[in-house]
């Protein structure tokens, strides 16, 4: 069984937000909802300070805090490591949102459902078709799903996630500088595994103890 994971190459990333916006289109996310973000900060003092850029998304942790606290088992981890929410089971208690130290979850409530990209001007065709094709349920929690639809469909079509675009997450495909690499962490020969080994990949805040499947190299 593969264990899907991601490597984000900070050296390559130029913070263009392609991942963020591509993700929004891929999943028809409503305004102000992000499954992918870019954190921009600074460290050090002038003139030797350094800009920090960290694209973040759900870490699909091995010891996921969200899975642990979910009282209904709506949040679950697949065998391949993808942490998902079963919208049909979620009771909307939001314990998962509160417990995620990376804050990668969003409560899909009526305000969000009713929000418009052009406020007060009605929903666009994009939003209307999105609600039809990729429906969320009001009162449940939504989050990055590592584009499992693409991964599953890709595998079904004989493609390899991380190598073939149609079997890889949308953010990986869209990254214009190749800063996102997707693949099987279990396979020592995979690009992700090799990069983590060679470039000493680090998880973001490993001290949280959740064992993320997203690694960063610099």
């Amino acid at each position: 069984m593969p264990r899907w994971g991601m490597v984000i190459d900070i050296k390559r990333c130029i913070a263009c937000w392609g991942c963020t916006i591509a993700c929004k289109e891929e999943h028809f996310l409503p305004p102000k909802v992000f499954w992918n973000r870019v954190l921009i900060g600074e460290t050090g003092k002038f003139p030797t300070s350094r800009k920090l850029i960290y694209p973040v998304l759900c870490n699909h942790c091995d010891d996921a805090a969200c899975v642990e606290v979910c009282p209904t088992n709506a949040t679950f981890q697949r065998e391949d490591g993808i942490v998902m929410v079963d919208y049909n089971k979620c009771a909307g208690c939001r314990a998962c949102i509160v417990s995620c130290p990376y804050q990668q979850r969003t409560y899909y409530d009526k305000n969000i459902k009713d929000a418009e990209y052009f406020p007060g001007q009605g929903k666009t065709e994009f939003e209307i078709i999105g609600e039809k094709l990729y429906p969320f349920q009001v009162g449940t929690v939504i989050k990055c799903n590592f584009c499992y639809e693409r991964v599953d469909q890709g595998i079904e079509n004989g493609l390899i996630p991380g190598i073939d675009d149609d079997a890889s997450p949308a953010c990986v495909v869209t990254c214009p500088v190749g800063a996102r690499i997707f693949g099987d962490l279990e396979d020592p020969e995979s690009t992700v595994s090799r990069l983590i080994m060679e470039k000493k990949g680090k998880q973001l805040r490993p001290e949280f103890g959740t064992d993320p499947a997203v690694y960063y190299i610099d």
């Binding site: 089971k89 909307g92 208690c93």
Partner: peptide, 25 residues
């Protein structure tokens, strides 16, 4: 009133093994 999906309240009882919320219920 707090719950997003009150009708699914009963489901909160399912994950007693690790959820404090479920245990509380």
């Amino acid at each position: 009133l707090y719950l997003g999906n009150p009708k699914r309240f009963w489901r909160i009882l399912t994950n007693i093994s690790s959820s404090e919320l479920a245990r509380g219920m």
